[in-house]
Amino acid sequence: MPEALEIQDTTYAGEAASFMLTRAVVGADTIQKGCIMVEDGIKKKKTIPRLDVTNIMQKRQATPTSSGSMVVDARALEPEDSMAYLEFNPRDFEQHWFAVQMNPKLLDAELPPTAENFVMLMMMERLNEFFENGIWRSRKDYDPDGAGVDPTSKGAEAADAAYLYWDGLIIKALEDPNTIAVSSPVALTGGASGNIITEFQRAYQKVPKALIGKYGELGLKLFISIPDQQKYENTMQLQTTFKNQDTTERGINRYNGYDVVPLAGLPENTFFWGMGKPDTTSNLWMGINSQDDNELKMQQLQNNSEYWFIKGLFKTDVQIGWTEELVMYTTQVA
């Protein structure tokens, strides 16, 4: 039976602290920073209705004839299945400092409360990291049981092969012919001779007029990766004649008055201009089966076993409302 738990620290040299240090990982930035509308309770499929009215004006007539069009269509959220599951033997902690906290009866061996809490905490943090990356980077074509596409052949990182359970926002934007794509994208650079501000401006010039001037948290935003945010700040420090910030202070995340939102899930050399909000006016959506399902269960594997398991079931999808109102800059390809 494969076991997930590996105890590498077995030397007792005094009392152990009453906590465990968990590894720092990226959080669910896209959700936590209010950049996407999360639709809950989708059992199979959720339709996002869209309405557009065009060509409605005409010359005055005593008896007018109908002119113009009213189009109602929809985008769909169809959450795809994924699962987290691992097994371990709590008795492995008998080799650890937490052994003194465990039940003295071997048949009732289980994790001490402190260890259990931190195991679950670390699991949840890893899940947040996974979903943050998956919102943007996922491609079902990466599935080795399907198309088995190598992410590096698409300009993505090799590690993106782990994100294969649904199609993320990047591939959906790439495959939609109505997405406003910036031509000839290049690797973004920062510093005194960096190109990042020039490329931001090239993309900004393609933003639809209807979105210009919509400032603030609920307005037009520039979504960028963490590495590109660092390039941008470095460029602002070195290229501007009149410095707009104290280089010892945290930078102001704005460009031309619009909020610049660094997101851990976005890959380097990819950014978007768009309207991403935590409400139904958002252009970016995420669909899940149920908030209640997005929990982890830890319990004994079966009555005659010493093994325990941690399990979580998830259904997830993402969607773009109007690709005609999303400007994409990426060195990745469809």
Rank of each mutant, 00 (worst) to 15 (best):
residue 293 D to A: 15
residue 317 D to L: 08
residue 107 L to Q: 15
residue 44 K to R: 15
residue 231 K to Q: 08
residue 23 R to F: 01
residue 217 E to G: 10
residue 196 I to S: 06
residue 39 E to L: 07
residue 317 D to K: 12
residue 170 I to Q: 06
residue 76 A to R: 12
residue 47 T to V: 02
residue 212 I to H: 02
residue 236 M to K: 02
residue 156 A to R: 08
residue 297 K to G: 05
residue 172 K to A: 02
residue 172 K to T: 10
residue 16 A to N: 15
residue 322 W to K: 11
residue 227 P to I: 00
residue 317 D to T: 11
residue 22 T to W: 04
residue 320 I to A: 02
residue 4 A to S: 13
residue 203 A to V: 00
residue 130 F to I: 05
residue 301 L to Y: 13
residue 90 P to G: 08
residue 189 T to Y: 07
residue 279 D to E: 12
residue 307 Y to W: 11
residue 308 W to H: 12
residue 79 P to R: 00
residue 157 E to V: 04
residue 13 A to C: 05
residue 163 Y to I: 09
residue 129 E to Q: 13
residue 274 G to S: 12
residue 41 G to R: 11
residue 203 A to I: 01
residue 7 I to Q: 13
residue 232 Y to I: 00
residue 137 R to A: 01
residue 224 I to H: 06
residue 92 D to H: 04
residue 251 G to Y: 04
residue 310 I to D: 02
residue 193 S to H: 07
residue 155 G to L: 09
residue 224 I to W: 07
residue 17 A to P: 10
residue 171 I to S: 03
residue 117 N to S: 14
residue 10 T to K: 15
residue 310 I to N: 09
residue 173 A to D: 09
residue 212 I to P: 02
residue 103 N to I: 04
residue 115 A to T: 11
residue 304 N to I: 08
residue 267 P to F: 04
residue 306 E to G: 07
residue 98 F to H: 02
residue 65 T to K: 11
residue 66 S to C: 04
residue 210 A to N: 05
residue 281 T to G: 12
residue 258 Y to Q: 04
residue 158 A to C: 06
residue 276 G to A: 11
residue 80 E to A: 12
residue 237 Q to A: 09
